[in-house]
């Protein structure tokens, strides 16, 4: 049983209790993905599996045999930050930085969701692709908490990213 993380194949743990989050942090030394609440409430452990955002803390690694994971470590090209990472810096979308990897992975998936016309609970008309305005972004980022209160900078960074990349 193998899993691909940021393009690299790895053998999955034999102990089915190991979450994808613990597998990456404790066995692969991939510390970019953070452990916040470890119970699916904070979003700090958000990663992409086959392009969709999920919570690595609630994912038992064994269930993701054959799947492809992207973490915050998989975004930058050498020293060149991913455009969304650069925009988080530019707009002060972080303070302590602990929730930031999860916020950025979540926002990348959010961009793809807008692109395919996915609705949210604040979308007025389910038949029309949602407009990426502030209300929509706030709703769609609600699964990622920030105890520092850097949300406003993040929303500016995400708004800027969406206008340039969608």
């Amino acid at each position: 049983m193998t899993i691909t993380i940021n393009g690299q194949p790895y053998d999955l743990p034999t102990d089915a209790r190991v979450s994808l989050l613990d597998f990456m942090r404790e066995r692969l030394d991939l510390f970019g993905t953070k452990k916040g609440c470890n119970q699916g409430a904070c979003g700090a452990c958000t990663v992409l599996i086959d392009g969709e955002r999920v919570l690595a803390c609630l994912a038992l690694a064994a269930q993701y045999d054959g799947r492809s994971v992207t973490t915050i470590e998989g975004l930058a090209d050498g020293e060149d930050l991913h455009p969304l990472q650069a925009l988080f810096v530019k707009h002060d979308g972080l303070q302590c930085g602990y929730c930031t990897p999860g916020q950025i992975m979540s926002a990348i998936a959010l961009s793809n969701e807008f692109s395919r016309g996915a609705p949210s609970s604040v979308t007025t008309d389910l038949d029309v692709p949602a407009t990426p305005n502030r209300e929509e972004i706030r709703e769609r980022m609600s699964g990622n908490l920030c105890r520092c209160g850097a949300h406003n900078g993040m929303i500016e960074a995400i708004t800027s990213y969406l206008s340039e990349h969608s």
Binding site: G40, G43, T46, E52, R53, V54, L55, L58, A59, S106, A109, L110, E113, P119, S120, S121, T123, L126, R140, S142, G143, N144
Partner: peptide
């Protein structure tokens, strides 16, 4: 079945709904 879509979208977070 728009109430079904809206009910699901009002629950949890995008990450959890994906799983």
């Amino acid at each position: 079945y728009p109430a079904l879509a809206r009910a699901i979208l009002s629950g949890a977070s995008a990450q959890i709904r994906n799983m």
